[in-house]
C-alpha cells in the first residue's frame, strides 16, 4: 500500500511527503485523517488542547441514566451501536458521532425518555451534532427512513427544539475524537523529530528508510486500533464516567500494549526486526501530554482492555495486519 519506490529518499524530510505517506495504509475508513503533520504541535495547538481539556468537565454527565425508568445501559448500548453504524454509513466524522452521544447523554440527564422514543432521541442528537460539525449533514427524511419511518418529521423537529432548549444551546463539547486526534498528532511530531535526528549516513540509508516505513505502517495500525477502541467505548455506559481526554489517552496506551505484545511475538519468529520500527511504542506518560491522573488512566486502560478482549473479533484484524 505504501508507494515508496520513487522519490522517497529525496523528500523524506519534507513534511508534505510524510503527510501523504501517513494517509496511505489502513485508510479504509479511519475517520480522522492525518493532516498537516508539520507544525502540528505548535503553541496554538497546545493552548487549544489545554482549553479543551479544562472545558470537558463542564460537558461530562455522570450517571445520566440514573433517573431513567425505561432506558437501561443495555438499551443505550444498542442505540449507540446503531448510531455508530449510521455515522459510518453517512460518512460523517467521528467528531459528529462523539458529539451526538454527548448530546444524547446530557439530554438523558435532564429528561425521562420513554423506550419507544429513544431511537428518535438518537437520530435527533445525531442531526444536531452534524449540523454543528459537518459541512454536509444528512436530511431529516433520510434519517427517519433509517428508523423505518416510525416517527414523523414534526416529532423530530419538536424534539430537536426541546433538546436545544434543555441543553441551553451548549454544544461545544470537547470530544474523544478531538483528544485522539491531538494525541496522535503529537506522536507524529515525535516521530518526525526522530527522523530529522537520524539523517542517515551514506550506505546505511536504505536500512533506516526501511525502518521508517515500517514504523509508519505500524503507526497506522496503532492509530486505527486506538480509534476502534474509542469507538467501541462510546457504546459502553461504563466509560461514561471518564473524561474524553482520559479515554483517548487510555485507548492509545492500550493500542500500544496490544501492538507491542503482537510485535514481540513476531520478533521471536523473525529475528530480523529491529526495535526502531516500534519506537513510538515508548511510554507517553513521561511527557507533558499526560495531565490527567495517571491512576485514572491506568484504570481506564485496564477497563478498555477488558472491553477489547470482549470485542476481539473486531480488533483482531487490525492487530494482525
Amino acid at each position: 500500500m505504501m508507494t515508496s519506490d520513487s522519490g522517497f529518499e529525496d523528500d523524506i524530510h519534507t513534511p508534505s511527503s510524510s503527510q501523504q505517506r501517513l494517509k496511505g495504509p489502513g485508510s479504509r475508513d479511519p475517520p480522522y485523517t492525518m493532516t498537516q503533520c508539520h507544525d502540528l504541535y505548535s503553541e496554538y495547538e497546545e493552548d487549544h488542547f489545554i482549553h479543551q481539556r479544562n472545558k470537558q468537565q463542564d460537558f461530562l454527565v455522570l450517571n445520566c441514566l440514573s433517573g431513567q425508568t425505561q432506558i437501561t445501559a443495555e438499551a443505550r448500548c444498542v442505540l449507540v451501536s446503531w448510531l455508530i453504524d449510521l455515522y459510518k454509513y453517512f460518512d460523517l466524522t467521528f467528531e459528529s458521532c462523539c458529539l451526538a452521544v454527548n448530546i444524547m447523554d446530557r439530554f438523558l440527564a435532564t429528561t425521562a425518555v420513554a423506550s419507544d422514543c429513544f431511537q428518535l432521541l438518537g437520530v435527533t442528537s445525531l442531526l444536531i451534532a452534524t449540523k454543528y460539525v459537518e459541512v454536509h449533514f444528512p436530511g431529516i427524511k433520510l434519517l427517519l427512513s433509517f428508523c423505518c419511518d416510525a416517527f414523523t418529521r414534526e416529532q423530530l423537529c419538536n424534539l430537536e427544539s426541546l433538546i436545544l432548549i434543555k441543553l441551553n444551546f451548549r454544544l461545544a463539547a470537547p470530544t474523544i475524537a478531538y483528544f485522539l486526534d491531538h494525541f496522535v498528532n503529537w506522536e507524529v511530531s515525535r516521530i518526525e523529530a526522530r527522523m530529522e535526528d537520524n539523517i542517515p549516513e551514506e550506505g546505511k540509508s536504505w536500512m533506516i528508510w526501511k525502518d521508517c516505513e515500517e514504523q509508519l505502517l505500524n503507526f497506522e495500525r496503532f492509530k486505527y486500533l486506538a480509534f476502534k477502541v474509542c469507538e467501541i467505548s462510546l457504546a459502553d455506559y461504563t466509560f461514561n464516567r471518564y473524561q474524553p481526554s482520559v479515554i483517548a489517552q487510555s485507548a492509545l496506551n492500550l493500542a500500544k500494549d496490544l501492538l507491542r505484545e503482537q510485535l514481540n511475538e513476531s520478533t521471536i519468529q523473525n529475528a530480523d526486526s529491529t526495535h526502531t520500527s516500534t519506537d513510538f511504542l515508548g511510554d507517553v506518560e513521561k511527557t507533558s501530554q499526560s495531565l490527567d491522573d495517571p491512576d485514572l488512566i491506568q484504570q481506564c486502560t485496564h477497563e478498555l482492555g477488558l472491553l477489547a478482549s470482549l470485542n476481539k473479533e473486531l480488533l483482531q484484524d487490525i492487530i494482525k495486519l
Binding site: 425505561q70 438499551a75 429513544f118 433509517f146 461504563t238 470485542n311
Partner: peptide
C-alpha cells in the same frame, strides 16, 4: 441499518438481537 429499535429496547433484557449488522457486543461488558 434501517430498523426500529424500540422493540429491541424492550427485548434487550432477553439479549442477543436478530443481529445481522455489524454489531458491537459491548453490552456483554456492561
Amino acid at each position: 441499518l434501517r430498523r426500529t429499535l424500540s422493540e429491541s429496547f424492550r427485548r434487550v433484557a432477553l439479549k442477543k438481537e436478530d443481529g445481522g449488522f455489524d454489531e458491537i457486543c459491548v453490552s456483554k461488558m456492561s
